[in-house]
């Protein structure tokens, strides 16, 4: 059965680049030795509510140093997948081994009343780093992301693009190696998006980190990812009777009573993860250089299936 991270994992040490003497201790170096190449190993992962899974039979491996992009229609269970990988939602079947993950939710979840600095420092404060130290680490991370002028400003007064940078800083400061990004730039204008793509490219898969990026933007996926996946409905024929089929009615009643489950589905059937078309070249190149129309067509075919 499933090997699932029961409790949310304890926050790890902050990112090495921003470490001060205290955090760059022997303990962290020891932790670095234990670095595993594989950040996610999921097979046959099923998640959702009882006999009405949102996800079914998901296989996914993410290695350190790579970014995996998942594209799919809205409501196909992308958010559920990220929550499962983050340990926020227990799988109902299958196995999942995942390194402690940092989730960057779709809408940033920042505290609008608090400064950029205090928002970015939140993971450190929760990891019991003293306030002064947490703030200086947050400042360093925010400066690196180009927010040096906004450190003390309340996040509620920042633009959408700046808010995403703060959210990215907060995500990076968790010190976790697996980053889970849920449509991070959905609410950002096109110009700002270009700048943020560059930032993400620099940070997502650097030294030992890896990322799972959920997006509906093909260009974004092509620019940032090493590999593409498509989250699409399980074909009817492949959908055998699940183990808990007897409880079908109760489960579907429960599901409608809860409204849309986290990340919910629009259709009745579960989704599964299919390998997308291979990308040419390297991340940092645009869709045209990574396969262009052929990739687009292949994806659209998969999504339409």
């Amino acid at each position: 059965m499933s090997v699932t991270p029961d409790a949310p994992p304890p926050p790890a040490a902050p990112h090495p680049e921003t470490m001060t003497s205290r955090l760059g201790s022997a303990r962290d170096q020891a932790a670095a030795v234990r670095v595993e190449a594989q950040l996610v190993r999921a097979s046959g992962l099923t998640a959702g509510f009882g006999a009405s899974p949102v996800l079914s039979g998901v296989d996914l491996q993410v290695a350190a140093g790579e970014t995996v992009a998942i594209v799919g229609r809205s409501g196909c269970g992308k958010t559920t997948l990220l929550h499962a990988l983050a340990g926020l939602q227990a799988p109902t079947a299958g196995t999942l081994e995942a390194q402690p993950a940092a989730l960057m939710p779709q809408r940033d979840g920042l505290m609008p009343w608090a400064s950029a600095r205090d928002n970015a420092a939140l993971p450190l404060r929760i990891a019991r780093v003293p306030r002064r130290e947490a703030r200086s680490l947050a400042d360093a991370q925010l400066r690196e992301l180009g927010l040096g002028d906004a450190l003390g400003r309340p996040v509620g007064l920042l633009s959408g693009g700046m808010r995403q940078r703060v959210a990215l800083a907060r995500t990076l400061l968790t010190g976790r190696r697996l980053l889970l990004l849920d449509e991070p730039l959905a609410a950002v204008d096109a110009l700002t998006r270009g700048e943020l793509h560059q930032l993400l490219l620099r940070h997502l898969a650097r030294d030992g980190h890896g990322a799972v990026l959920v997006t509906h933007d093909l260009d974004e996926a092509a620019f940032l990812a090493d590999r593409l996946f498509v989250l699409a409905p399980v074909p009817e024929s492949a959908e055998g009777p699940g183990p808990g089929h007897a409880g079908d009615d109760a489960a579907s009643v429960m599901r409608s009573a809860r409204g849309r489950p986290a990340g919910g589905t629009t259709g009745p059937g579960p989704s599964t993860l299919l390998p997308g078309p291979a990308l040419l070249g390297q991340p940092g190149q645009h869709l045209d250089e990574r396969g262009g129309q052929a990739v687009r067509d292949a994806l659209l075919t998969q999504l339409a299936a």
Binding site: P8, L88, I126
Partner: peptide
């Protein structure tokens, strides 16, 4: 809330 849960 999601972020806080994720951070444990």
């Amino acid at each position: 809330d999601l972020v806080l849960r994720n951070l444990g």
